[in-house]
Amino acid sequence: MIRLDGVGQVFDGREGQVTALEKIDLHVRGGEFVTLIGRSGCGKSTLLRLIAGLLPPTSGAVQVAGQPVTGPRRDVSFMFQRPALLPWRSVLSNVMLPVEIDKGQGDRGKAAYRDRARQLLELVGLQGFERRLPHELSGGMQQRVSLCRSLIRDPQVMLMDEPFSALDALTRTELSEELQRIKMELSTTIVFVTHSIEEAVLLADRVVVLTPRPGRMREVVDIDIPRPRSLGQNAHLTEVAAISGRLHALLAEKESGEPGVPGEVRPVDEVRP
């Protein structure tokens, strides 16, 4: 579904050029859930924007559904770290925004999309809030609206840029579990950026670990824990612990290749040069 071949990205910074990404080769299969994990500044958000067509790669090729990416596609949706709702629009009309922008190309009527929007809002537990304005909702509710908006056109691919990282821990867990449920119902391909190992283990079929400056693929870890997965008490604690430990080790590793202690959490800045 998504194919990256030798993708690299160089930005012109104030002090010369900065290599954000280097030699990224990744193939995401249809219906797969892949998370990109790494420290801040490892270029994971940049990678997502390359797939979204928001940014052209400096080198290499990006393909979605067999076609080279030249710009944003209507079958690919993007979800941001912040809800990014238009404050003057009601919940329902925020969800309907992509349909409205894309008028003329809709394969269904607007009324059908409106029904779909209501359905999605119900799916995330927001029935009855259709006419509210965003500022009347909590952060978690706003991000749910944002999730509905990115699902309204039944995208083939969903790109999610740390969508739950601005929420409190409980809401984050709740939304992750909800996303997993939605994922099991729809067959959307998802690429999900995060810096939370917990989130990655809960959600992903495969985890791509990126190293910082320049962003390179360090390793791809398969996660074979059966779904539905949940946090806390569950039947697969050993597997979860093993994979989490491994991811910790990979992320803690210094750029020289010196391994970190598995399971040890180091403050982010300590490791950076």
Binding site: L54, G71, P72, F78, F80, A84, L86, W88, I101
Partner: peptide, 23 residues
């Protein structure tokens, strides 16, 4: 992030202007 949202939805310049910036 709102500008990026409009871009990701393939909004035209006019749509970005009237539906977002001016509002």
């Amino acid at each position: 992030e709102l500008v990026e949202l409009m871009r990701s939805l393939n909004a035209s310049r006019a749509q970005e202007f009237f539906k977002l910036r001016l509002r």
